[in-house]
């Protein structure tokens, strides 16, 4: 079962990569919001490729999670430790890719998400040194664009290659992945872009950040948020050496608490 999910996950990654390669041609970081709107409403097939990129990436994240959950449900994790670490790392990079992708849509919620990320980095000891890696004071979305379009795809490709040893496309799984993505994009809509001049009472970041956002609103410190974010990754790493009930319960507790804060 885990193998089949892995094949679909790889296919989803390739669909996301290829659709991203198409939308990048109409994206201008210096005029980000307008270029996204142009892509969605003027460029022929622009919305189709934007939806394909968005939904394949979302399903990619879900399939990584399912893939990891299947491995955890087994009595012992059968892959080697390095391969396990690379899969956890790939999940982390995939989430950062999703976050940078969310920011690149450049609407009000994207802008707010970027500002919150800057503040989190700025107020975290040691990580504050890395702020210039993402914040560009001249073209706001420029560094997000470079990370999302170049460095992060290279890093995740490296992690996936180290995890599976060979990145290959099985045409059957590719067809399944493409079919599922198209089906989902038929029934679901992209989250609405909030215009830069719109007066809104509340803006939200990407769905996997809602829990952290609500914890921030409840008054949790930046250090606390960092612990909340890093904890599941540490638990997943720890599960390789001792796939004990205690760690599984802790992870489940984390999921329940985070889900509670997310809604």
């Amino acid at each position: 079962m885990s193998k089949y999910v892995a094949w679909v996950t790889q296919a989803l990654f390739i669909i996301s990569l290829l659709s991203g390669l198409i939308v990048v041609f109409v994206y201008y970081p210096s005029n980000a919001y307008d270029s996204v709107q142009k892509l969605s409403f003027i460029t022929p097939f622009g919305l189709f490729f934007r939806e394909l990129h968005y939904f394949s990436s979302e399903i990619f994240i879900f399939s990584i999670l399912v893939h990891i959950l299947i491995e955890l449900s087994k009595k012992e994790i059968k892959i080697n430790f390095k391969s396990w670490i690379y899969s956890i790392f790939a999940l982390l990079v995939a989430l950062v890719l999703m976050f940078t992708g969310f920011v690149l849509k450049a609407d009000q919620s994207a802008n707010a998400a970027a500002e919150v990320a800057f503040s989190l980095l700025k107020d975290t000891p040691f990580l504050d040194k890395f702020l210039p890696l993402v914040r560009d004071n001249f073209v706001f979305y420029w560094k997000f664009f470079v990370w999302h379009g170049l460095f992060l795809p290279l890093i995740i490709e490296y992690a996936i290659l180290k995890h599976v040893r060979k990145l290959s496309v099985n045409i059957s799984y590719f067809t399944i992945a493409l079919g599922v993505t198209l089906l989902v994009s038929l029934f679901l809509n992209l989250p609405r872009d909030i215009g830069l001049d719109e007066k809104v009472l509340h803006v939200k970041g990407p769905w996997f950040f809602w829990g952290a956002e609500n914890m921030l609103q409840a008054g949790l410190s930046v250090l606390g948020i960092n612990v909340v974010i890093i904890l599941p990754f540490l638990l997943l790493i720890g599960m390789y050496k001792s796939n004990t009930k205690l760690l599984k319960i802790l992870l489940l507790l984390w999921v329940i608490i985070y889900a509670y804060f997310s809604v």
Binding site: Q108, N111, A112, E115, V116, F118, S119, L120, K199, V200, L201, H202, V203, E213, L216, Q217
Partner: peptide, 22 residues
């Protein structure tokens, strides 16, 4: 001054509101 989001000004209440964390 909390997490850096751009504030909105509400003309009716004459207050600045943060759309991120209220």
């Amino acid at each position: 001054t909390h997490m850096g989001c751009i504030l909105n000004f509400n003309k009716d209440t004459k207050q600045f509101n943060c759309p991120c964390h209220k």
